[in-house]
Amino acid sequence: MADAIEKVSPLHALAEPGRFGDTSGEPGVGLSERLCDSLVQVQAWPDSISALKKAVKSVTGASIKPGNAVATKGDVVLMSTGPGRWLVEDETDDLEVRLRKAIGADIGAVTALTHARTVVSISGERCEWVLASGIALDFSADAFPVGTAKLSHHHEIGLTIHRTGDQAFDLYVVTSMVRSFWGWIARASAEVGYTVS
């Protein structure tokens, strides 16, 4: 029997802590990365949206919010990614099983994406500037308020972007391309100076 198999981040060798880019002033942004313990997509059929919302609530204790508002409760994050479709994140390792139990095929579909995304976080005064330099979204607080999420891309790299604070975003990046993404965001941050933690 094999030893316990651990998760390894695709960024483990890239995201070395330190201070990079322009070092003449205060760093403009800070970058970090993390893996999800559980990230599960749930999607309803058009006639079972409320049943699915109920099921999600029963499993996570959190209520889905309307539109692209992100619901957070404890370690649970609920983000909408399309009509009838949400991403559910928490810090357990059996979220998929629990959701599948609650959401039968008559209600919808449950798909684990825990490994399919790697989360890159960016924070700091210049984070809107850095993100806008590669992603064609309006990052101003009016257009992209704290506590909402949007889907977009950096060229061919798909992104789910959650504004977690005034000057902080979590980006759920497609895992196989997260190294390219890191390469870009590090280059983009170099002009304003950045730290990696």
Binding site: Q41, Q43, G108, A109, T111, A112, L113, T114, H115, A116, R117, V174, T175, S176
Partner: peptide
């Protein structure tokens, strides 16, 4: 429901 899971596995 169709979901790309190329990156999951």
């Amino acid at each position: 429901a169709l979901t790309s899971v190329s990156d999951e596995w």
